[in-house]
Design a protein around this nucleic acid. Structure first.
Lengths: 215, 215
DNA sequence: GCTGAGTCTGAAACTTGTTCTAGATTAGCG
DNA sequence: CGCTAATCTAGAACAAGTTTCAGACTCAGC
């Protein structure tokens, strides 16, 4: 059971060694870029996020954009990181209310899903980038994955998941991403996504280890 | 220029009407193209499948390639269709031997997985195309999905699945695609993919309904 | 065999992600 | 303040997917 050494409390998902303390203006540039990216994505999805337009909207030269984010995929995955962090904070303020872990996870994911429905184009851009990412984006995609895992574990209310439970969580994540894709590409309805999420969440019950002293 | 009327003919149950009786030379061209695509993909994955190179390797003009497959994604999804059909035939010759449906499905998917491992670059190209496909490729992606469903249902040995079981199959497919992606991008090991597949296949047990009658 | 519609070819053009270059600006430092 | 290295800018250039077009070819029907 190796969980790596990341501590789940702080929001600094800084798993990259090469993050040498940006100046204030640089931090501002970075935020402008991410904002422009999200804005363009919201308007027209993956294709609408064109690097020249992002650069212009962010008031930054194309070369600079590429210095901050080495590819369009990197940019969109970073955008997703941003949005997920937002979601995580929101969710922590109002945790799901179900009695069973499976219920709570399903509710959490459906809440996230509804948030995505409000900006389907943005969802499209982020999810497509996430699944299209190749090895060069692995660290960033991994960060997103860890964030998602954290959100699900939060909903389950688990501090020390068993390997079995971690596997169930991974499967839930798989289903979550893939179901999103089928919805985004118009091959599955919202109702179907809901059913799939509820179906996969039943896996949690299978791995629910009877904790000593509980029930 | 629209190719116009394809409706005058017999209405076969085949849900692929976009192929109005190719001549022999056209069929040959199509096969050459798919072959070239698979070959280039095997060598260097998604990026190595360059439309100009596919055209040249297939001995066909670029415009012709685009007439047969309106985009690189269409081409690669069609390539996947081809390979899946192959796999399906192979699997039917030697069906999985497990006693439980869940076992058989897991075995089937692991067999498919091993086949993909033999051509990881090809797998990369096909799976990336599949998940990156947008709405314009929905029909083709759907065909692939139905093929996959058929393979899984075959392994389960089901003729008339319940909606619940179909949902489980969809979740298995989700997991299958997404697990493949994490493996291809180097974020999950082969062992982990195996565990995830086995985990999700446990869902089948949950929906295993006794054959005669329902509660 | 001749014709006309549809198809194929070769090549150029266009689009958008990415890279490169030369000069201007900024940040850190003595 | 003045210096130097790093960063930023504008813009050209390059790469690969896609589109377009004029002309050559194929094929079904006469």
């Amino acid at each position: 059971m190796d969980r790596g050494s990341w501590n789940g409390d702080s929001m600094t998902a800084d798993a990259r060694p090469a993050a040498p303390a940006l100046t204030e203006r640089q931090e501002a540039r970075r935020r402008r870029i991410l904002h422009a990216s999200a804005q363009l994505a919201s308007r027209g999805g993956f294709e609408a996020v064109q690097m020249r337009e992002v650069a212009e909207a962010a008031g930054v030269a194309l070369g600079t954009l590429y210095r901050y984010f080495p590819s369009k995929i990197h940019l969109l995955v970073a955008t997703m990181q941003d949005q997920l962090q937002h979601l995580h904070t929101t969710l922590r303020k109002r945790p799901p209310a179900g009695e069973e872990a499976a219920q709570r996870v399903a509710e959490t994911l459906m809440r996230a899903f509804r948030a995505l429905q409000r900006e389907p184009h943005l969802a499209d851009a982020m999810v497509r980038a996430l699944t299209f990412a190749d090895r060069s984006v692995s660290p960033e995609v991994d960060t997103v994955s860890r964030l998602t895992t954290a959100i699900i574990l939060d909903a389950m209310g688990l501090e020390h998941p068993t390997p079995e439970q971690l596997s169930a969580v991974r499967v839930i994540e798989h289903t979550w991403h893939s179901a999103l894709i089928t919805w985004l590409s118009g091959r599955a309805s919202i109702a179907q996504v809901k059913i799939d999420i509820e179906t996969v969440c039943r896996l949690i019950d299978l791995t629910a280890e009877p904790e000593p002293g509980r029930g």
